[in-house]
Amino acid sequence: MLELRNISLSVEDQFAQNNTKEILRDVNLTIETGKFIVITGPNGGGKSTMAKMIAGILKPDQGQILLDGEDITNLDITERAKRGVSFAFQQPVRFKGITVRDLINLAAGHEIGDCEACAYLKEVGLCAKDYIDREVNASLSGGEIKRIEIATVMARKTKLSIFDEPEAGIDLWSFNNLIDVFRKMRAEIQGSILIISHQERILDIADEIIVLADGRISAKGTKDQVLPELLKDDCRYCVAGRRAMY
């Protein structure tokens, strides 16, 4: 179970009052083990910031983060990763010389067999033999590297997997697969999955939808409770209506 207690985070902003801008404002949130949660909301609402903060990439100014009751607020990225937090970047990082195989091995925490490594690639719609020894460098397209990023998180099999806009850069065919990937992951790992997304079809498979707007949680509930209002043009959860999300 992941708990966020009274989380606030500001960043420097020369155009804002006092040169600081509040990104997250006193956020409280509990994510139960085994749940599939989607965080949505307008751009600039604090979604990615919250995801990075859970992974330890950003530190909150105030508040506490608890994972299965343990306070992980002051743990760094590595320590959180070791305790079972995974993070798929919105814009995956490229490396010269590091291959897809290297990355999947690092993600799994040990050398895994070709069969297993290839199975992860197949899940994300990549032909394993074409990709397993390729470098994770600039020669990969945005969609290819995005799928490899998802495969690395799958290989980790952790109790909390966070995906920051996994659909960005993914074509329609892959997108259909992506939905299946999440469904399968959920069944296999039995951990919590936290996805940041604007996609209605991802929202549709969530146990719970959280709307984050202007640094605050403006709605939280099952898809039946949240989705109808969210799909309205003048959605009251978002400051400037639903259109601000796109």
Binding site: A55, I57, D76, I77, T78, A81, K82, V85, S86, F87, F89, P92, V93, L103, L106, A107, G109, T152, R156
Partner: peptide, 9 residues
């Protein structure tokens, strides 16, 4: 950062 999210120091 990416490699640290995979558990490396």
């Amino acid at each position: 950062t990416k490699l640290m999210t995979l558990g490396l120091t």
